[in-house]
Design a protein around this nucleic acid. Structure first.
Lengths: 200, 200
DNA sequence: TTTTTTACTGTATAAATAAACAGTATGAAA
DNA sequence: TTTCATACTGTTTATTTATACAGTAAAAAA
């Protein structure tokens, strides 16, 4: 996929926002207005660039005839995470799902497919998709995605300070995980906003 | 809410379909084409009727300026079910959520808010929303919504024939429910397609 | 029975919109 | 150094689109 310029990226985001908020894509004039272009043709040329690079499809002769290109739409589902790679690296994204936001309490950056039974007692089971919001500021009680020495795990955060982190599995067959972030490589990847499970 | 005529309902459905499939609302001409109207004005008048009845909002002077009215959109969430009332009766619908379909394996007719812990061992816990598809043809192994003598319950279907139905709670503290549909009032309301849980 | 609503055809037009063409200017790539 | 891509302004035009007005006809409501 070809890279977008900053401006092109802004315009792509704007189109996506307008579709979400207004229920229809913007016109060239509306794009020009938003970015302060004095000519609608500026918008036209950005659209052509986005089309050429494959991010949108332009439907000739149609008002508001802009559609976002599916493969780059939707929320990524992160499956198995290769050790050491960023969660959202392309090789970890198993697919994307169309999803419009108003369901969870915050915006969903990605879904993570759950492995294992360590969170069974709070109703998170193998194969579930958990909705994740990328953030570092989590508090005890939150279910978090954490990275410990290149290993990604989902647990309830029980305690967090500079010298000690305690992650609690929600299954009595497992023990608490205690980490010294000064010694071990530890990072909070995000907060779990909810669960999505699809039978069959 | 005022009732729609058959034609108006067809047109509302078409608008909704076009938005889903094309990513933008149709023009008057496109509506006329779809229904075989020889004049775009026929579409215009139907739109005005739908606007007047509150089902859509028309944005004057804007191409494709049709938006569906939120309160009638989205998938209903059924909360507590009043004894004897149809599940989808207005008094049982606690709210609606925007939701676009491609997530579950079949279309979601409504979400049911889970009460109690009888399905805990398969990860369905109190407060969860379960996605339901209205259908009668369910098979053993399916998680179903059933009505037993005006009581609505969610269980795994274990056995089903004309003389005996066995519903199985997924929690060892509960016993199987055995029903004789010839004697008791029993009905399958739908099949559970999946689970949606929102923390906080 | 009269009025209103529904459901259309047919015509017309102002405004919205897409999109081409002609420029200017800058920075990056070949 | 020349070409190409980016990022604009400014103008123009054909087409799309919304939408009003004038009718016809049937069914429903008052």
């Amino acid at each position: 996929m070809k890279n977008l310029t900053v401006r092109q990226s802004e315009i792509l985001t704007f189109i996506s926002d307008v579709i979400s908020n207004e229920g229809m894509p913007p016109t060239r004039k509306e794009i020009a207005l938003k970015f302060g272009f004095k000519s609608a043709n500026s918008a036209e040329e950005h659209l052509k660039a986005l089309d050429k690079k494959g991010y949108i499809d332009l439907h000739g002769g149609t008002s508001r005839g802009i559609s976002l290109n599916k493969p780059f739409l939707g929320i990524p589902i992160v499956g198995s995470v290769a050790a050491g790679s960023p969660l959202l690296a392309v090789e970890n994204v198993e697919e994307r799902i169309e999803f419009n936001g108003n369901i969870f309490s915050d915006s969903v950056d990605y879904f993570l497919r759950v492995k294992g039974d360590s969170m069974n007692e709070v109703g998170i089971v193998e194969g579930d998709l958990i909705a994740i919001n990328k953030r570092k500021d989590v508090k005890p009680g939150d279910i978090v995605v954490a990275r410990i020495n290149d290993d990604v795990t989902v647990k309830t955060l029980f305690h967090l300070d500079k010298r000690k982190v305690i992650l609690r599995p929600e299954n009595k067959n497992y023990k608490d995980i205690e980490i010294n972030p000064a010694v071990e490589n530890f990072d909070i990847e995000g907060k779990c906003l909810g669960v999505l499970r699809n039978y069959n």
